[in-house]
Design a protein around this nucleic acid. Structure first.
Lengths: 139, 139
DNA sequence: CTCCTAAATCGTAATATTATTATTTACAAT
DNA sequence: ATTGTAAATAATAATATTACGATTTAGGAG
């Protein structure tokens, strides 16, 4: 949280009760909450918060690298996770379950070198899709 | 296109005029059309086509690995591209421009090994975000 | 502490995407 | 050519996500 405050100040952003509540919700909601789930949690303390505020703050946290957004191809809404260490996810196309993958195969410097166009990479989004063991056995 | 017909047959899917028109549109629309752009192109020959059909066929083509979907973080709608060779994209967070990156740093076997959970990976989605040379110079 | 200003918020509207249902159609087998 | 069946479609509704405008607020400067 102190990390967050510092990053906000660096970029001229402010701390608000709503913003703090979104972070708290991410800490308390368990694994992979959606924007809706976070909204309901935040409403316990801030009943008038708007969904737009949730999305806006999540987008900001993603931009700051403090939160990871996970795209569940075609399924329900996207889900979110506090970034403890940078990592990626496996999404099962059959049951929709999300699994963590500790390993990140991306090196921004290597990619920027391959690009050869003066592009400055600041982040990336990567998900793997397939079938989990349970669904493979069932299917 | 013959490649497409074969892949469809393998999995029990059918070829329809709408499906063919979506592929034609991808060939003729220039770089990175959105679902809306493809809809308008298809309407020239099939005026009653529905947007749902466009999305459904694009999703199928993505599933078959024949089309790549590009997520433009927070900007307009997603865009699509026929897969000639598998590759990824750089998206500029300032002007929204999309650039191709010939190189793919992902090896499904390595990742599956790292996962160690019997997960079978069939595809992945990867985009890089940052700032293109033009926007960096502009400041 | 008060003022100032950019940032943030809420409420609402607009857009993007997916799901549902009844009907139609491709295509393989007869 | 006819038929049967699973897949595909169009129309519509539902949901997810983003944008906009008026108002409020955080937080630094005086």
């Amino acid at each position: 949280m102190e990390n967050l405050l510092q990053k906000l100040r660096e970029k001229g952003y402010k701390m608000t009760p709503q913003r703090r509540a979104v972070v708290t919700a991410l800490l308390e909601c368990g694994e992979f909450p959606s924007a809706q789930t976070i909204l309901e949690h935040v409403k316990h303390t801030l009943p008038d918060v708007s969904l737009d505020t949730i999305y806006r703050n999540l987008a900001l946290l993603v931009e700051l690298g403090l939160v990871q957004e996970i795209h569940l191809r075609g399924r329900e809404s996207n889900v979110f996770e506090l970034t403890v260490t940078h990592h990626h996810h496996l999404v099962c196309l059959s049951c929709g379950k999300t699994l963590c993958l500790d390993h990140c195969p991306i090196d921004h410097r290597d990619v920027a070198k391959a690009a050869k166009q003066g592009f400055e990479i600041v982040s990336h989004s990567l998900e793997f899709y397939g079938y989990c063991r349970t669904c493979r056995i069932a299917g």
